[in-house]
């Protein structure tokens, strides 16, 4: 680990516009610092700036950026009205990590691409302009949608996938003021600048996550993984479905670990509406979703796996 300066912020104003790297739970950042993948000169600890409340806001909910993943998942209102969020959080990491991990930090967790994490292979995300060792290498956990020549990494997290399905928003405060970003627009595709995972600007701090009014219906998070716990998703599907008289009334879907961001596709959500659930319908939805899917070798299987996981999720969410 490289030597660094450490300061603790007392309130939000000290964090906004700070050139230092923010540290919250530290569960991702410290690992990357030990590997010298992240080498900040200065850390600003934001654990004492508040933002730890979960509060009613109209019909929705405002979750402070420093609420722990455990507290969020266990919150009675979230479990009752946005169960998808609880389920996705509990599908990730381990209890110890979730106790430390924060909402803001979770959104900003970095990719698990082995070449990014090793600290020395060519990697445009870690060291822009050096190339992308994952292409032609070991890329079993890489993207099948939205990748670029510069980078084929995935966003690995679970929580943001649920938040994307739930159409949550992210509230931030930066030197230019407060803004609210749709969760679905928060993470970006790699394009020709994979060094940026999301649309946060320098000095901008995540202050809260906003949940809109409860969607109701049936909500589930399907995370497919190599082992039963403590593994990142191969593919995940967040689904919230409302039924009406045997037909799909509304569908909100998001997909994890298949792209550089939680993947959403409004065309798929729309085509399901008004239809009776059937294996054929689920297949048609997958056809549309995966129209442009592209394997990289080791991860070719994710195309079929996404299709199957979507079918399983839809069957369960629309079933009797």
């Amino acid at each position: 680990m490289k030597a660094f300066d450490y300061t603790r912020a007392d309130d939000l104003s000290q964090a906004v516009g700070s050139p230092a790297m923010l540290i919250a739970g530290g569960t991702n950042l410290l690992d990357l610092m030990k590997l010298e993948v992240a080498t900040p000169d200065a850390l600003l600890d934001i654990n004492r700036i508040g933002l730890r409340d979960i509060a009613r806001e109209g019909a929705g909910l405002r979750i402070g950026a420093l609420v722990s993943n455990s507290d969020c998942a266990a919150h009675p209102r979230i479990r009752a009205d946005w169960p998808l969020l609880s389920r996705a959080i509990l599908a990730g990491a381990s209890p110890q990590l979730r106790n430390k991990a924060t909402m803001g930090g979770n959104l900003c967790q970095r990719t698990r691409c082995g070449y990014f994490m090793d600290g020395h292979s060519p990697c445009n995300k870690r060291e822009p302009g050096t190339g992308c060792a994952a292409q032609g290498g070991v890329n079993r956990n890489h993207a099948i949608l939205g990748a670029s020549d510069a980078c084929i990494a995935t966003y690995p997290g679970d929580m943001a996938v649920a938040l994307s399905a739930l159409r949550a928003t992210v509230e931030t405060e930066g030197p230019d003021g407060v803004r609210e970003i749709a969760m679905r627009d928060f993470h970006r595709l790699p394009k020709d600048d994979p060094s940026r995972d999301n649309v946060l600007k320098p000095g901008e701090v995540i202050t809260a996550i906003r949940l809109p009014a409860p969607f109701g219906g049936r909500q589930l998070y399907r995370k497919v993984r190599d082992r039963a716990s403590y593994a990142f998703a191969l593919v995940s599907v967040a689904a919230a479905i409302r039924m009406d008289a045997g037909r799909i009334d509304a569908a909100q879907l998001a997909f994890g670990s298949i792209a550089h961001k939680p993947w959403t596709d409004e065309r798929v959500e729309k085509m399901l509406v008004g239809e009776r659930p059937s294996a054929a319908l689920f297949d048609k939805a997958a056809d549309l979703l995966l129209e442009d899917a592209q394997g990289q070798g080791d991860n070719d299987f994710k195309i079929l796996l996404t299709r199957r996981t979507l079918a399983a999720a839809l069957a369960e969410a629309t079933g009797e």
Binding site: D226, R227, A228
Partner: peptide
């Protein structure tokens, strides 16, 4: 070796 730690080299965990 690409998966050179216990996060990426998957030994069974308790839930397995």
């Amino acid at each position: 070796l690409v998966n050179h730690d216990l996060a990426e080299y998957h030994v069974p965990v308790h839930a397995d």
